[in-house]
């Protein structure tokens, strides 16, 4: 609805129009549109997640820092788990879940996601497959659409800021490979932010297999023609909202705000465009551990927030 990249957790009424505004302010104050190739990123302050600006850039309030010694401890525990992963998955899955809930240490996040998603197994079962797909010529129709989207994913992340830079190149490879892997599915625009988040954490081949797992195991049907799965989940969310907040439910109903008008991006991008970055990562830790971010009480603050903004907007 109101553009979504804004910080979904902050109650900032000025922000109703969302990300574009924020992005713009940042830009006008700093970046000339053509200078990006010249690596202006070095002059800019890059946050610890690689953002040089935009609404999702890290701020003091958006995440608490965990003491280094705690991070070290967690790293040791995670390394131990990853080294005997099958055993842990079979016998101590609850413990894995608990540790995901606490947040995966940043240094091991990519590997952990690959393991949790089953992308690791897929990769091992299909050795050389990605390289094979990568070397093929894709369907020009899909490639055309993909190319138009490359510079429009996380434009304030250092990896994706330069046209034709490494981030965008890898994004192209991963998305192209998927259209070759599942030609009947092709490419859906909402896959690009997902792939981009993965690429921030792992190399192209691993990102590809994680993407495959997300599209087929975690969010089956979300990106398929007809978009039926997402519409269905919208209805489920709406039904859940009715139970959680009748007021919000009735208000949306009265104004004929179909769930699809606000939840498409939340769900299709697994909140990667919606939340502050530190929260995105924590949500994804749980997403990979527990599966589909189904309509869940977690979404409710978000939805309530949305309803309030909508009210404000309407009666302004």
């Amino acid at each position: 609805m109101a553009r979504n990249q804004e910080n979904g957790l902050q109650t900032d009424s000025q922000n109703l129009r969302g990300n574009s505004e924020n992005l713009l302010e940042r830009e006008s104050s700093s970046i000339g549109s053509d200078s990006e190739i010249n690596g202006f990123t070095t002059e800019k302050h890059t946050d610890k997640y690689g953002f040089i600006g935009g609404a999702q850039q890290h701020t003091e309030e958006s995440a608490q820092d965990i003491p280094p010694e705690v991070v070290r401890q967690r790293e040791v525990k995670w390394l131990d788990m990853l080294n005997s992963w099958d055993k842990w998955m079979a016998k101590r899955h609850k413990k894995i879940k608990l540790r995901c809930q606490k947040g995966i240490p940043p240094s091991l996040r990519g590997r952990a996601w690959l393991f949790l998603s089953g992308g690791k197994v897929k990769l091992e079962q299909n050795h050389g497959k990605f390289q094979e797909l990568d070397s093929k010529v894709g369907d020009p129709n899909w490639l055309d659409v993909i190319e138009k989207d490359l510079h429009r994913q996380f434009p304030f992340h250092e990896m994706f800021v330069s046209r034709g830079g490494h981030g965008q190149q890898d994004l192209y490879r991963v998305l192209k490979a998927y259209t070759l892997y599942r030609p009947e599915e092709g490419y859906c625009q909402a896959q690009a932010p997902i792939a981009a988040v993965l690429l921030m954490h792992m190399p192209a081949e691993e990102a590809f297999w994680c993407l495959v797992q997300i599209c087929e195991k975690y969010l089956p049907g979300y990106y398929s023609a007809g978009l039926e799965a997402i519409q269905l989940d919208g209805e489920v969310l709406f039904a859940l909202l009715r139970r959680v907040s009748t007021v919000a439910y009735k208000h949306l109903k009265k104004h004929k705000i179909d769930p699809v008008l606000y939840m498409t991006e939340w769900f299709m991008c697994a909140f990667s465009r919606t939340l502050p970055w530190a929260s995105v990562l924590r949500v994804w830790d749980m997403f990979f551990c527990e599966g589909k971010p189904r309509p869940h009480p977690l979404h409710m603050p978000c939805l309530t927030h949305f309803c309030l903004r909508h009210l404000w907007f309407y009666y302004r």
Binding site: A2, T264, M268
Partner: peptide, 11 residues
């Protein structure tokens, strides 16, 4: 703004 994201969500 030439630095924006793809529109997936009607707004």
């Amino acid at each position: 703004n030439d630095k924006h994201i793809t529109t997936l969500q009607a707004s």
